[in-house]
Each structure stands twice: as structure tokens, then as C-alpha cells.
Design a protein around this nucleic acid. Structure first.
Lengths: 217, 217
DNA sequence: CCGGCCATCAACCGAAAGGTTGACTTCCTG
DNA sequence: CAGGAAGTCAACCTTTCGGTTGATGGCCGG
């Protein structure tokens, strides 16, 4: 079923970026079947995505947020959208609780899609992104709204940084050394975190933050 | 490139089980392209996988371990392999550190494959499974070996149970009440856990156990 | 049948974390 | 420019946690 709004226009040039060959094949199979969409390239890493976005000049980049081993899709998004005639970036993610959702949006992503989306949703989101409109999965949009409705659950940058190190298993002393702070400051940040999350110890804070997607998984 | 060992035999009947339509499409696109493999069905849930495994009588079931919302691929594997003329079950997973690896193998899975596998790896694993031989991704096999080489990293059932509650954010007192134990016993278990994992506090233990896939993600 | 692992509990002590108050600076925003 | 949020630090106190020692009983395997 071809969209009525672009029956005879040039097809949407699409770049796929995902570290899983299987997922790339799935996206290609689903989207190449659409007559108004043409997959012009595939990237297996974040840096390759940035490079190909420049070389191939696609209309839309469909980018996985969970790139294997370190590289963040949000970073690549920022690099891609930094340029003047940049393609639209559509983020693809597994979890609607991802801590990097806001980061990706701020990095210039046009839309957000969950990996359990149907082929129809997928094609629709690509067309919406190509048209320059924002495409957000309902679950994600609701979560973003909720984030705004409850600013008390929003941790400050420093608080998140400290909590992340707690989640990595570090003691207050180790954290103070890692961040060049006194232990008093670390404790101060953590007390604020506990209050905001409604918990009273560090492991509960990590569990709560993980549930709410405030820290890395 | 057709395998030399089965040039003219009936194709391998394959059932795909994954909750992501995109992944199913990718698997179908990759595997249907192989002349000796035929995808006979797709299941989006664990229970559907069990049902179709009975109805379609496939040779191999390619099953995702991370089925959305609760249902475990390991459980479905156990149900499928319980019957006498059961198909081979090939497990597909995103993480090579998954705590359920052993559970799935014990449930009767013939092989194990990571989602970042190449199409060639994938087809080869399906053929290996169809032939009844065990197909393990190198990273997974190595990890299983490592598990056996270092039994000190294997936590006892009770220790894992306590550590899981720690990861959920509970204090020693809360855990003691939840498990009908004294706090002394909880502490005792945790000290053993710390020793086995080589850490000296609860948050570090949770981080380490999470890395090694000893507890739920 | 005995040694070892698992599971349970107690008492004790020092160290770390949790909680409060208060104070100072910087930066942003109304 | 006044106010607030964020970030930094200190001193103090209470509670929890980490670590040790030791003890009991069940179960399994050599």
C-alpha cells in the first residue's frame, strides 16, 4: 500500500545502521518491499554510519541505539545531524526505558522507534521522518511526557554520574577519587539521589534508576 | 553455496520464534535464501512456538531467549524437547553472558547462537542442529568452558537467591524477612558471595554478577 | 563413614554508609 | 540583580554492612 502523498516521487533513500546482520537483513527485507523506499546502504558500526551518511547522502538514517561494544548511537546521531544538509535520523531501540532516549533526541534525532514495531509502523515512521516530521513510538512519547510531568525523578548530571559509578560497584571513597571530590560531596549527591528516587540505600537507588532508565543497563 | 553433505535431500523444515517482527523477517530473508532450508512458520510468543512446534513438526526451531514480557525461551524449550520426536531447538540470544544459557542447555537446546552472528554462521548452525550435532557459538562455548574451569564463580542456589534480592535493592533485614531467615544467615550468604566474586561490597557484587550473567538483567 | 559443601544462626567489632545541618561558590533565569 | 538550583565541602551522629569465629545439621560422594 503506497502512501497517497508521494505516489510518483523519487523514492526515499534510506541508510540502515545496526550491528546485527540479521536485524539489517530484516529491515532491508521489510523496507525494500515498499516501492517508495530504497535502502542505499548498511552500516555495522557507529563510525561507519557517520561515514556512509556523508558519502551516500541518504534522506533518512535508521540507527540502532545499542551499538555493540561501547560506541553510542546517540554520539553518531549528533555527528550526523551536525552538518547543514544532514539526513533525518530515526532511532531504533529495544527498550522504551532507555536512558539515552533524551540524549538521542537532544542529539537531533527526528524520531524514535521500538524494535518490536510492525513492518507497517516501520515504513510509516520512515515516511514521517523523511517528511521532516517527528515520529515517536507511543510508548516512548508517553514516557517522555511522564518524564516532564515528574521532574522530581530527574537526576542532575552530577547525581547521575555518581549513581552510575555506584551501579558499577564503587564505594564512596573510590567514587570520590575517580571524580576528584571529597567523600562528603559524594554522600551529599547520593542523599539527594535517594530523596528523589524515594529510596534509602544505594542498591535500591541503582535498582530504581535501572527500572526508570536513568542509568546504563 | 549448498552444503556438499546434503545436496539433494529434502529441505530442513525450520520454525522461527522471536517476538520482534523485524528479526523474524531478517531470519526468514537470510535462511529462506538457502536452498536446503525452508522456513515453515513464525511464532511471536513462547506459547505460540510450543504450539506450532507440535503442529508443523519442523526439524529445527530457532528460538529467541529474550521473549518479551515474562515468558522465557528456556521454558518453551523444555516443553518442546519433552516430547519423543521433538525438533532440535537452536537458541538465539543477544548476550553471551546470559544467565539462562545453562538453563536452556539443560532444557534440551541443541545449540546456541548470538544475534550478531553472520548469515553464514546462522545457516551453518541450523544445518548442524538439523544433523543432531551440538552447535555452540565460540563465545558461548568458551564461556561454558570458563564456567567449568572456575567453579568458584558458581554461586549456590541460595546465594544466587539472596544476591538477586540485593540487586533488587533490598536491605539485609528486608531479605531476611522475605526469605524467612535471620539477618546472620543473609550476611553469611553474602560474605560467601563476595569471596566467590572477588569483591568486598554488595553493589560491586551485583555489578560483577550482572556482568557474568549470574543474575537477572 | 568421614570430609566437604550447603544452609542455618549467634555474637562481636570496626568500617562504611546513611542522614542532618550548615556554609560557600557558580551559573542561570526571571 | 535577586533568587534558585547545582555543586562543593565539613562535622557530627546513627545505622547498616562487612568480616571473623564458631557452631549445628543435612546431604552427597569417595
Amino acid at each position: 500500500m503506497v502512501s497517497e502523498t508521494m505516489t510518483d516521487r523519487a523514492p526515499i533513500r534510506l541508510l540502515l545502521a545496526d550491528d546485527h546482520p540479521i536485524v539489517r537483513s530484516g529491515l532491508r527485507a521489510v523496507l525494500d518491499a515498499e516501492p517508495d523506499i530504497e535502502v542505499v546502504g548498511e552500516a555495522a558500526t557507529a563510525s561507519e554510519a557517520v561515514r556512509l551518511a556523508g558519502e551516500l547522502a541518504p534522506d533518512v538514517v535508521l540507527m540502532d541505539l545499542q551499538f555493540g561494544s561501547g560506541s553510542h548511537g546517540a554520539d553518531a546521531t549528533a555527528q550526523i545531524t551536525a552538518r547543514p544538509d544532514a539526513p533525518r535520523v530515526l532511532i531504533l531501540t529495544t527498550y522504551d526505558t532507555d536512558a539515552d532516549i533524551l540524549a538521542a533526541i537532544e542529539a537531533g534525532a527526528t524520531g524514535y522507534l521500538l524494535k518490536d514495531a510492525s513492518p507497517d509502523d516501520l515504513a510509516a515512521a520512515v515516511r514521517t521522518a523523511a517528511a521532516g516530521r517527528s515520529a515517536l513510538a507511543p510508548a516512548v512519547a508517553q514516557r517522555l511526557m511522564g518524564r516532564m510531568r515528574t521532574p522530581e525523578a530527574a537526576l542532575s548530571r552530577r547525581e547521575t554520574e555518581v549513581l552510575q559509578l555506584v551501579a558499577d560497584g564503587m564505594s564512596n571513597q573510590q567514587i570520590s577519587r575517580a571524580l576528584f571530590l571529597s567523600q562528603a560531596t559524594v554522600k551529599s549527591h547520593l542523599v539527594h539521589v535517594f530523596t528523589k528516587l524515594g529510596v534509602d540505600n544505594r542498591t535500591a537507588a541503582v535498582a530504581a534508576a535501572r527500572r526508570q532508565g536513568l542509568i546504563r543497563r
